[in-house]
């Protein structure tokens, strides 16, 4: 093949790779779906079979596709966690971690900072008088050793006076709150998608402007007392949110 031909073949295959990745990302190609044969694909995209082959090999290497000998090339099932927003109340446990735990991921976390602060804005979020102290816990959460969420949690210090002595990299915040008889059992929550900031995006290994879920949870114990305010930044690429809604 001459030089030009080779260059064209390589860029054709690069373009084809991108197209397929995009189709997988937007869901035009679904996990488990079979791709066209290499010949059909070459015809469809008007590129050489060599270019198709090259693109397919790269995508298999990169984990987007897999081959089943004798039957073709398929889209790999993605390791996307599903967060079911509806089950949380039934299991009496909420927060991103609890939802993902239900989805079977192995969870761990790293505490970045923690301690008490006396700041009116945080006291207000917990419906406390402005002078009251809150205990703040700032963590990165890992699912199967990959960072998936950055969280800021605030709890009223007077209800959890021994929080400072707890190692929250080992002990779950909810287990601790439960042990102190102030487990959140009802929640107000909201979420939106934002573009990753330098700070939280950086901790999650995201480039700027990549999307990230932003959650806010306000948790109430069984006496209706505000016991938790959490802000959570969750990677979008490994998560989708599901919920059932009824007409009211």
């Amino acid at each position: 093949m001459d030089r030009d031909g080779k260059d064209r073949g390589q860029s054709d295959s690069a373009i084809l790779q991108e197209k397929i990745i995009e189709q997988i990302r937007v869901g035009d190609l679904l996990p488990g779906e079979k791709l066209l044969s290499e010949r059909a694909m070459a015809e469809f995209y008007d590129v050489s079979r060599g270019a198709v082959q090259y693109a397919m090999n790269r995508l298999v290497e990169q984990g987007y596709l897999y081959r089943r000998p004798g039957s073709g090339t398929f889209v790999k099932e993605r390791n996307r966690s599903v967060m079911n927003l509806e089950y949380q109340n039934e299991v009496g446990n909420s927060g991103v971690t609890a939802m993902l735990k239900n989805a079977g991921a192995r969870m761990s976390n790293r505490v970045l900072t923690c301690g008490r602060i006396q700041e009116p804005a945080f006291a207000r979020k917990l419906q406390m008088p402005e002078g009251k102290e809150v205990y703040v816990l700032h963590r990165v959460r890992f699912a199967n050793d990959e960072a998936f969420a950055v969280e800021y949690s605030a709890i009223p210090f007077d209800l959890f006076p021994d929080a400072e002595g707890v190692d929250f990299s080992k002990i779950s915040l909810y287990d601790y709150m439960d042990a102190r008889k102030h487990m959140p059992v009802a929640f107000n929550q909201r979420f939106k998608i934002i573009e990753a900031s330098e700070r939280e995006g950086g901790l999650l290994g995201l480039r700027r402007n990549e999307p990230v879920f932003h959650f806010e949870f306000s948790g109430y114990d069984r006496d209706g007392r505000a016991v938790e305010y959490t802000e959570s930044y969750v990677r979008c690429d490994r998560t989708e949110l599901r919920f059932n809604t009824r007409v009211r």
Partner: peptide, 30 residues
């Protein structure tokens, strides 16, 4: 009566960006 829904993030394609008045390939909600 009811909906079974899911939400994820995507990058808007050319047409979507144009219709929604977004800069090209910025994130959008699906």
């Amino acid at each position: 009566d009811r909906a079974v829904s899911r939400v994820s993030a995507v990058h808007a394609n050319g047409l979507e960006s144009e219709l929604l008045n977004l800069p090209v390939s910025r994130p959008a909600m699906r």
